[in-house]
Design a protein around this nucleic acid. Structure first.
Lengths: 337, 337
DNA sequence: CGGGGGCGTTTTAACGTTCAAACGGTCTTC
DNA sequence: GAAGACCGTTTGAACGTTAAAACGCCCCCG
């Protein structure tokens, strides 16, 4: 465990010079730099992050509250997201610190504490809710943050965010289905209380109208829970009420799996008789058969933008609200063969 | 952002006394303690972790390498594990720091670097492999670690670990199936190269023998990948070759889902005609129908033991190898109604 | 030849905390 | 009544780093 002092002694320079060699190499004369660099390598020196942070009061750590989920609700792309976030943080020399906190505003003292004790520089929020109180609170406390997901509705100054254009994604799915000959496209959704759901639904509706396809109220079905069973049940209702449906855009992969199951149960072939698309391109999408066409969120890009916004000092010209386009991954459930 | 100095001035004591009030309150006279405590509250003081860590050279941070998975292989219980790990760390005043690293021994420089720069005190490893080189390497470097999962086979001094008795879990599943009248129980497995697979398989074999049930080689089928398709295909082969099979113990929930699908395809009812069990009790197990009987790993306990081993200084009497019992969660796929 | 300006390096001080030793007071003990 | 032990508190130093200022040197210019 070599220290700056030991390196300095070895290279026969002052401590500060070694520090400069690392943080501002242009200040050193080339030969000095080389001598110092050699000593650093020789002694296998690594800067002590704690000492550095104490001096600079920046810890290069970003807090992320690991979501807890109601039973039976999986976050199937969470590991993708975490991996992307981690990678993005690392390319900027930072790391992710995990913690737990109560949901909503009750969790705020935890955020404040972590920041006050200087365990983190700022936070990445996810699971943003319709009237998420966390944004306003953090802004008030002047704690840096960025949110994955817009704050939906009625909140003044929502703060910096990165989000995916769910409406655009669903519209793309509808257009793809239209191109492959589908003409009566249903939408499997969640309850109205979710901003996410309304956004995606609006994309389906807009694209259908644009293409002259029906958007009857009966074509948009809501499931109370994000489970396979609910997806299957809703699909059954849909097909019973309207046998002409030839495609289903589901708001999640899980609901889409439910749709697939119900189709199989009825002796229908997904992708042939009725096309199905999901959302998130979770790992399950590619392991079922027929494999599920799904709308993939660009996790790497999301993570990069999140870290970028969080670590770049606010600049007048640069927006801190970024909407990214998802990608439609086409598989057998909508285009067999 | 109050500091110790400011609190000291406010309480009219020395800095060290305030420090003692927090770290060794028994040393203070009750009235002094109260006065100091009051000042701390009044100024909303929070100790600066960096300064503390610099002095004590302990950062109270535990590194965990976020696993990256081959496409189409989901780690469905990773968020459960992370949540449990986080919670366990927090109850001991620590936190989890995420990072990425190449798999195997190539990732070791990353571990060393994080430790040398004093970003973490130690590591929790997971995804332990048969000849995992990380354990030996870390031990050699004297970097504290604990592994979730045994090092299988031939490694001397495997190092501290917490693991789940997969054999015991599978044996419990077999006994449960036997109790409910099943007499020809098959096992859906992975390739032989996995220590995990061999462990679980051995539990099935042992329990069957104990109960006088057949363990023909044809009853133990191997799937090359952990996908629903592979599980379905293997189940099809199994039933074609041996129509007498009345129960299937699958080594993973994913394979079990494949089995369920194949049964449905054949017009058989899971839980009635053929019983099926999975492993991990992933979120999917409870959202399919019939819901899947599955072997649940005690995540909270696992996490607690991991943190305990990692943070407790080695004591001669106390073992650092702990094997925990999983819990069989019985649902409709093995016991309808 | 004296003053100003770069340049590369060193010096000084500070970040906020804890450890170890020192201190002064009171209470025992012989 | 002096010596020792104990208790609660303070003092001094250190952890390893970086920011800012100071320094000495050389070069240029008037």
């Amino acid at each position: 465990m070599a220290t700056l002092k030991q390196v300095a002694a070895h290279a026969e320079v002052s401590v500060q010079t070694v520090s400069n060699a690392l943080n501002a190499p242009h200040r050193l004369r080339p030969d000095t730099l080389q001598r110092v660099t050699k000593s650093i390598e020789l002694l296998n020196y690594r800067p002590n992050r704690n000492a550095r942070s104490l001096r600079t009061s920046a810890v290069e750590l970003i807090g992320y509250c690991v979501p807890s989920w109601p039973d039976g609700q999986a976050h199937l792309v969470m590991d993708q997201f975490l991996h992307a976030l981690c990678t993005a943080a690392e390319t900027s020399g930072r790391h992710i610190l995990l913690f737990t906190a109560p949901v909503g505003v009750e969790g705020m003292p935890v955020y404040e504490d972590l920041h006050a004790r200087r365990l983190v520089d700022g936070f990445v929020l996810s699971q943003t809710e319709t009237h998420d109180p966390r944004h306003g609170w953090l802004k008030e406390q002047q704690i840096p943050f960025v949110s994955f997901g817009r704050v939906w509705k009625e909140t003044t100054q929502p703060g910096p965010y990165v989000d995916v254009d769910g409406a655009g994604g669903c519209a793309a799915a509808v257009r793809h289905l239209h191109e492959t000959g589908r003409r009566r496209i249903a939408f499997l959704s969640w309850p109205k209380t979710s901003g996410l759901a309304e956004d995606r639904l609006s994309g389906w509706r807009a694209a259908c109208r644009e293409l002259g396809l029906p958007t009857d109220a009966s074509l948009a079905v809501r499931c109370l829970e994000d489970t396979i069973d609910q997806g299957a049940r809703a699909t059954a209702e849909l097909l019973d009420a309207d046998p002409g449906v030839d495609a289903i855009v589901a708001i999640s992969d899980i609901l889409a799996l439910g749709a697939l199951r119900e189709l199989t149960r009825r002796g229908l072939t997904a992708g042939v008789d009725v096309a199905v698309t999901g959302f998130d391109d979770s790992p399950l999408a590619s392991v079922v058969s027929p494999a599920l066409t799904s709308i993939r969120q660009p996790m790497d890009q999301i993570a990069t933008e999140l870290i970028d916004i969080l670590t770049t000092p606010a600049t007048p010209g640069v927006s801190t609200e970024r909407l990214l386009q998802p990608e439609l991954v086409i598989r057998g459930s909508s285009a067999p063969g």
